[in-house]
């Protein structure tokens, strides 16, 4: 029976503990991570009309339209705890759509509808920015999601 050197044994134990911690963290995040994976929907002209649909008190649909150099609707008001489905398209070139502090990151492509779902659990202002260079006004292309407490 081979006997390990004490230093070799310590290195192996440290390595095993680190790998175990790493795997545990990945599995924990897999269970905890509730973000929706963006999906591509069949094109429908109805999505090119910007609007906010209230489905019920905490469920909303946003038809977001990107064009040079603005997002419409530019301000979206939802109450705390809302689950918002974003349907995104572009009227011209490719734009980006990134919601700050949320794992929502999509591309707005002409003739395509991209969808993601975001839950807003804390009140505040969440900036939406275009992160794909789209022309001379790119840096001004922003919108906001304003999350308030519901009216009493």
């Amino acid at each position: 029976m081979a006997v390990l050197d004490k230093y070799e044994r310590r290195v192996l134990i440290s390595l095993g503990a680190t790998v175990a911690l790493f795997i545990f963290s990945i599995l924990y995040a897999k269970g905890r991570y509730k973000s929706d994976v963006p999906e591509c929907l069949p094109f429908n002209k109805a999505y090119t009309e910007p609007k906010v649909n209230k489905i019920d008190s905490t469920t909303y649909q946003v038809f977001a339209v990107a064009q040079m150099w603005q997002f419409q609707p530019a301000e979206i008001y939802v109450p705390v705890g809302s689950v918002v489905d974003f349907f995104l398209t572009s009227k011209d070139v490719v734009h980006g759509f990134d919601i700050a502090e949320k794992n929502a990151n999509m591309m707005a492509v002409y003739g395509n509808i991209n969808k993601t779902t975001v839950k807003f659990e804390k009140p505040g202002v969440y900036n939406i920015t275009c992160h794909e260079y789209c022309g001379i006004g790119h840096q001004n292309m922003q919108a906001r999601v304003i999350v308030n407490y519901p009216e009493q």
Partner: peptide, 19 residues
């Protein structure tokens, strides 16, 4: 190893906070 853990868990908890 400690530096790698700090960087990796820094991004990890940032990701979890954004869900």
């Amino acid at each position: 190893v400690a530096l790698c853990l700090v960087i990796w868990y820094g991004i990890y908890f940032l990701m979890l906070a954004r869900t």
